[in-house]
Design a protein around this nucleic acid. Structure first.
Lengths: 194, 194
DNA sequence: ACCTGAACACCGTTCAAGT
DNA sequence: ACCTGAACACCGTTCAAGT
């Protein structure tokens, strides 16, 4: 067998990522496997290793897509330059909704770890950085006169805090802690920090 | 073969948990397997299923232990009733240190998910709840006159925020975000919230 | 009653062999 | 050059069979 030439490498890459996204969405991160992906796109596992270094790299690209999608829905909100507080409220609310509505994929972004020693390619933390930076514009308006260093710190602390609440919401831990929704927690956080 | 009777069920359970703890500590969560645990305690995999329902349950007990250990180091700090702010600083600092020094096990507490539909036994979220409650005492002193509901909310928001920062610190994400230590982020958070 | 060993249905990854 | 199929070294879980 061999040599079909039905698709270019780029095409196979995209087909694989699409298939993987569907599997994660429908069955969850831990049910994703190279064999399932290969079967879904009509190729054998070996072919995946022509296109990706390994499963970890494939997941990295998939997480990159997820981060891009989040950026796409958050970035437009920054334009609302008139009311920085409201802007931040909308950003966190959008973040929360995105995480809840793309539960499995969002989980994967935070649960996936590269094997000891291997570290992520530069473009990946860049995507995260860009997301964090989105908060800086409204925060700069809100805390005028503060140094850029201070604004950057505030943005990172705020995102991390929202993420922490969100992480607990995703594990259903909140229910056991006496809260059935993360919204009031986010509100409390923002009231304190804005 | 069969029927050795060298150890009681309780003993095997403890041996298995000890062995699992060592494997996680030395090789990380994702390298933990029933076969490795069984080999380490000198039994076959089958025996583990006499003692635990499955690997998920074993991990749940292990995570329970980790939560207990964290409680043991945090609880004594609550006694310091004189200065609630300083008390909270010490609690978060201790939490952070614990997470950093028990990286793999702490990761496991937050990464481990039960299969869809299965939910955790009541004693597990109780342990988490007790940890959250530890923050309530100093917070009550700090925000006198506020309702218990409000204090509980504040405690949960604060712990979640610290956890969010800590989670980013554990993934080394912070380095890429321009911070080599979570300490200044925690400081900024507490300055804002206390 | 307790424990084993083998089996089943899965994994990720590699690579000689085929077209 | 591209792709397969089989192999290797692993998984979690079950259960007939042995003592």
């Amino acid at each position: 067998m061999g040599r079909r030439g039905d698709h270019s490498i780029e095409q196979i890459k995209e087909m694989a990522l699409d298939a993987a996204e569907t599997i994660v969405r429908e069955q969850g991160y831990h049910h994703l496997s190279t064999r399932k992906i290969a079967k879904a796109i009509g190729y054998t596992v070996g072919t995946l290793y022509m296109v990706f270094e390994n499963l970890d790299e494939l997941i990295l690209y998939l997480n990159g897509r997820t981060l891009d999608q989040l950026y796409e829905v958050i970035e437009p909100l920054v334009q609302r330059q008139d009311d920085p507080k409201r802007c931040i409220h909308e950003m966190t609310h959008t973040y929360l909704n995105f995480a809840l509505q793309n539960r499995s994929r969002w989980n994967m972004v935070f649960e996936h770890r590269l094997p000891e020693g291997k570290d992520v390619p530069g473009w990946y933390p860049n995507k995260i950085s860009e997301l964090f930076n989105l908060l800086e514009t409204p925060l700069r308006q809100l805390h005028q006169g503060e140094s850029e260093q201070e604004i950057a710190l505030k943005a990172r602390v705020l995102w991390s805090s929202v993420h922490g609440i969100c992480a607990l919401a995703l594990t259903h831990s909140l229910q056991h802690l006496g809260f059935d929704s993360p919204e009031p927690m986010i509100e409390s956080l923002l009231k304190q920090n804005l």
